[in-house]
């Protein structure tokens, strides 16, 4: 047991206690937490900073506003309703199409305005925020997912989680929903985590339910070698998010929109440790590398370049030929 403990220490895997004591407590000031915990504040700050986020259509803060809902929703064909303080993808209602007073959900179900009103009412009562405190409902643009991950995800919203330390992206993974995760891109709930090569933005290894895997459990397709388009822009976008909340140890969740490219979905002040399993790489050496620097470049583009340079794989996997779907597969990395 002690040998295992030493081995783990030697390997540089970041543990929960160490993450909390040496990184989160040291680099994340508690007073900055509201900037990431409240999605509305995150969104407003991001828009001001020129970071692309799903467009805000409306917010509902008190029960009375629900009556005006049809008018609020009238001009939008599709939209997403989510709680401002939600976590783990709970309480999100995706409306794919609206016609007159009928709304078609992403699941294909047709519902009336009553259903939507009740859902918002639940959000306001705090049903979906873990603390249980009264919440706000956010109505925003529906992201049309890039079909890039179609073959290696099952329903739901694949997103890219990047750990950004002192503004430098240090490790990233794609979170791929499975049948078991019920469309949620949360590793705890059974989503697949696929590591990303920081230099090229290609998927490398993967983990599912704390076990290593090479294929998606639902589709059976190999995971390695999927190229994320415009990887450099994406890295820079993550690096820029550091300025939004002034959190030194930050998790940035980004989705790829088919029409608008990468968009920041939410920020996380306590990102999980499974990213190490997804990449099969320990976090600590990378964090220590950044920690040892006296100053970090102010320019996000330089920080992104630093990440590519420092943390890229020596032998990235070859790009997978994605046939059929007609999507821009392997855009050349500039």
């Amino acid at each position: 047991m002690i040998r295992l403990f030493r081995g783990l220490r030697h390997s540089g895997v970041l543990g929960m206690n160490e993450r909390n004591a040496d990184y989160i407590m040291l680099y994340n000031l508690r007073r900055n937490y509201p900037f990431v915990d409240d999605k509305l504040i995150t969104k407003q700050r991001a828009e001001r900073a020129g970071i692309r986020v799903p467009q805000l259509y409306a917010t509902v803060e008190i029960e009375r506003q629900i009556r005006k809902l049809p008018r609020l929703l009238a001009e939008h064909d599709d939209f997403v309703i989510k709680p401002a303080h939600g976590s783990g993808g709970n309480g999100i209602l995706v409306v794919a199409e609206s016609r007159n007073d009928n709304y078609r959900l992403a699941s294909g179900r047709l519902v009336g305005i009553d259903h939507i009103s009740h859902h918002i009412s639940n959000i306001l009562s705090g049903m979906h925020s873990l603390g249980g405190q009264p919440d706000k409902a956010v109505i925003e643009q529906r992201v049309i997912f890039d079909p890039l991950f179609e073959r290696i995800s099952h329903g739901g919203v694949p997103d890219i989680r990047t750990i950004v330390f002192r503004g430098v992206p240090v490790m990233a993974m794609v979170r791929l929903p499975t049948r078991g995760s019920d469309g949620k891109a949360n590793l705890h709930q059974g989503a697949v985590g696929a590591g990303l090569d920081m230099a090229t933005g290609r998927t490398t290894t993967a983990v599912w339910m704390d076990r290593f895997t090479d294929i998606h459990p639902d589709t059976g397709d190999p995971i390695a070698g999927v190229q994320i388009p415009e990887w450099n822009d994406l890295l820079e976008l993550s690096a820029r998010c550091h300025a939004l909340a002034d959190l030194g140890y930050l998790g940035v969740d980004i989705v790829l929109d088919r029409n608008h490219g990468p968009m920041v979905l939410e920020l996380n002040a306590r990102p999980g440790l499974s990213i190490q399993l997804a990449n099969r790489r320990p976090l600590q050496p990378r964090l220590q590398r950044i920690e040892a620097m006296e100053t970090v470049p102010v320019d996000p583009a330089r920080r992104a370049a630093m990440a590519r340079e420092l943390f890229g794989e020596e032998e990235p996997p070859p790009v997978q030929e994605v046939g059929g779907s007609g999507v821009a597969t392997a855009e050349p990395v500039p």
């Binding site: 540089g12 895997v13 543990g15 399993l277």
Partner: peptide, 19 residues
Amino acid sequence: YTGYRLTEIWRFRHLIREQ
């Protein structure tokens, strides 16, 4: 205490071998 939790040794056991 910033050392590993016992359950983490189990969780990350494959990473030890990897290294």
